[in-house]
């Protein structure tokens, strides 16, 4: 039974890792061919990514879109999550529900809605439309993590502070904010990484004018494969692993994902 369990577990991990191993191998090819195992080892496709404008410009574009979108998502989520937690207001609960909704729907719906909005506002194809539409789509993530943080807060410490005469803003500044900061960080990272990888919304609202990295990869997939695509994919995966790894190291990832906080 034990062996069977181990075998199954390893098999699934192998399934999860196999495509990553292949792209890593392909990215190390010495020639402009997509061989696995790679023929000759070289890092030239990584240098190519950092030196060729057709690759690093979309990457920079994606990074700035993701940074801004995650910041805006956070700025929407923080006051909303706080008001829902602090006050009994129907409007706040309704907005909270709407803020979580994008993740319960196939992204193509949000994408088409965004396209329709920007056509009506006559801003179709402008770079800022991607930032705003991403922010609205990804608001779910900081909203969920911040709410989780607020809900796991110890009520007694707030009560004590209030009894001792602290007003709302003092309580927020000295107790609530420091406590939820790691949850805000986690929400920001989730939103950032997802925006970086998002394809369909970016493609719908500004696919023909703003080439983000996922769009660039898909275009290369159609019009000629190159090992740079593999090196970019590896860099993306490593970046995500690094960021989530940091959350795992400094935060409580199992708790953030909803495991009980009591056991070891």
């Amino acid at each position: 039974m034990m062996i069977l369990k181990r075998f199954f577990f390893s098999l699934v991990v192998l399934y999860l890792v196999a495509p990553l191993v292949i792209i890593t191998g392909v990215s190390l090819n010495a020639q402009k061919r997509l061989f696995f195992p790679p023929q000759g080892l070289s890092l030239r496709w990584y240098f190519e990514f950092f030196s060729q404008a057709e690759w690093y410009l979309p990457a920079l574009r994606s990074l700035s879109i993701a940074g801004l979108a995650a910041l805006i998502a956070m700025s929407i989520a923080l006051p909303l999550a706080y008001t829902v937690w602090r006050y009994d207001i129907k409007l706040a609960r309704m907005l909270y529900f709407l803020g979580l909704a994008p993740f319960a729907l196939p992204p193509v719906i949000t994408a088409l809605g965004a396209l329709a909005l920007w056509i009506v506002l006559q801003s179709f194809g402008k770079p800022y439309t991607v930032v705003l539409s991403h922010a609205a789509f990804l608001v779910t993530l900081p909203l969920a993590t911040i709410s989780l943080g607020l809900q796991s807060m110890n009520a007694e410490s707030i009560e004590a502070a209030t009894t001792l005469g602290a007003d709302n803003s003092t309580v927020f500044r000295t107790i609530v904010f420091p406590y939820i900061r790691p949850y805000m960080m986690a929400g920001f990272v989730f939103a950032f990484v997802l925006s970086l990888n998002e394809y369909i919304i970016a493609f719908m609202v500004a696919g023909f004018t703003v080439e983000t990295l996922p769009i660039k990869i898909f275009n290369s997939l159609r019009y000629g494969y190159t090992p740079v695509m593999a090196s970019v994919s590896v860099i993306f995966f490593l970046l995500a692993t690094l960021l989530f790894g940091l959350i795992g190291k400094f935060g409580d990832l199992p708790k953030l994902l909803g495991a009980d906080s009591s056991s070891d």
Binding site: F190, N197, F236, F237, A240, L257
Partner: peptide
């Protein structure tokens, strides 16, 4: 934790990248 990090990293990976790596 390492498995969770691997899982979230794959989950956040662009569908383009997954499609590409599976085509390889």
């Amino acid at each position: 934790v390492p498995y969770l990090v691997l899982l979230i990293s794959i989950l956040s990976l662009s569908e383009v990248i997954i499609a590409f790596s599976w085509s390889l």
